Simulated scan of single mutants.
Amino acid sequence: MAKTIAVEYRVHDGPDALAHAAAEHFLEQAQKSVAAKGKARIAVSGGSTPKRTFELLANPKEKFLQAMPWEKLELYFVDERTVPPTDKDSNYRMTREAMLDKVPLKPEQVFRIKGELPPEEAAARYESTLRNQFKLEGAEVPRFDVLALGMGDDGHTASIFPHTAGIHELARLVYANQVPQKDTWRVTLTWPVIIQAGEVFFLIGGKDKADPLHRVLQGQYDPETLPSQLIQPKNGKLLFLLDKDAAALLPAPDASGKGKLEIQR
């Protein structure tokens, strides 16, 4: 039976406007979750666009630093490169330098993937962390309140790359994914975990993303080639925060910059 995914996209003028919109969204969703249940569990991705957002969240000249309920947050990572936390390629290092060193989050509120360990061990340890923090038993899956994704120009998301084994992993929460096209390993949340989140959104900017985004949303369903198509949230809603370059091949948004699609999967 076909499943309908309601896709909303919001188009912004450029990188700064996009980062600001993402910061607003993080704040809104965190406040909403804290009001409903007393805490917000947030999973973030790496990349240049999230970096701008994290810098805004930590900027004392912006409202976010004071408005964010930092003491009620738990911060997790969607994926990580197999490098130490001090390495320039580390998602954790980028997040720490852009935000964590400047906001009132205690170390015990931040849960990183230990990319310095052998990949399988790093994945097993992070899965154990999730099971402990979410008090999971058996086949239960953690449910993040907010989960932010990016998308590569090859259609990958998290560290689930085209034609890699991570596409087919259904049983584990965290997977050590061999990525031949990058000649490396990555440690990533699996897509069955990602789609359980209460709020899943993509943050995408740049001209190089226009064609793959168009194919992900309006092309033939081929997740082996376009793994971002696997992200079909259980709640039936999916949000894309975009700049004009990334949105160039999508149907034109309305005057407020919002567009909608219904996708059958």
Rank of each mutant, 00 (worst) to 15 (best):
A2W: 13
K3V: 13
K3H: 12
I5T: 15
A6P: 14
E8A: 09
Y9D: 11
H12W: 06
G14K: 07
G14N: 12
P15F: 04
A17W: 01
H20G: 06
A21N: 07
F26L: 13
F26T: 05
Q29R: 12
K32H: 13
K32S: 13
S33E: 12
S48Q: 12
K51F: 02
F54G: 00
E55Y: 05
L56P: 00
L57C: 00
P60R: 03
K63T: 13
Q66M: 14
A67L: 13
A67Q: 15
P69R: 08
P69H: 03
E74S: 15
F77E: 10
V78W: 06
V78Q: 05
D79I: 05
E80K: 02
R81Q: 09
R81A: 07
T82H: 06
P84W: 15
T86C: 11
D87F: 10
D87G: 09
N91G: 06
R93G: 01
T95L: 13
T95Y: 04
M99G: 00
L100W: 04
K102L: 07
K102G: 01
V103Q: 00
P104G: 02
L105V: 05
P118C: 08
P118D: 12
A123C: 06
A124Q: 13
R125E: 15
S128H: 15
T129N: 12
L130Y: 06
N132D: 10
Q133G: 13
F134V: 07
L136C: 10
E137C: 10
E137D: 13
E137S: 13
E140K: 11
E140S: 14
V141W: 09
P142V: 15
P142M: 05
R143H: 15
L147A: 06
A148M: 15
G152A: 10
D154W: 09
T157A: 02
A158R: 01
F161W: 03
G166M: 03
G166I: 02
E169S: 09
L170V: 09
A171V: 11
A171W: 09
R172G: 12
L173I: 09
V174W: 00
V179H: 05
Q181H: 13
K182T: 14
A197N: 04
G198F: 04
G198A: 11
E199I: 04
L203Q: 00
I204F: 02
G206F: 00
D208T: 14
D208Q: 13
D208F: 11
P212E: 05
L213Q: 08
V216G: 02
L217W: 07
G219V: 08
Y221N: 12
Y221I: 12
E224P: 06
T225H: 15
S228N: 08
L230G: 01
I231C: 08
Q232T: 15
Q232L: 11
K237G: 06
L241W: 01
L242N: 00
L249Q: 10
P251T: 05
P253V: 05
D254M: 07
D254K: 07
A255P: 09
G257C: 07
G257K: 03
G259F: 04
K260W: 14
L261S: 03
E262N: 15
I263Q: 10
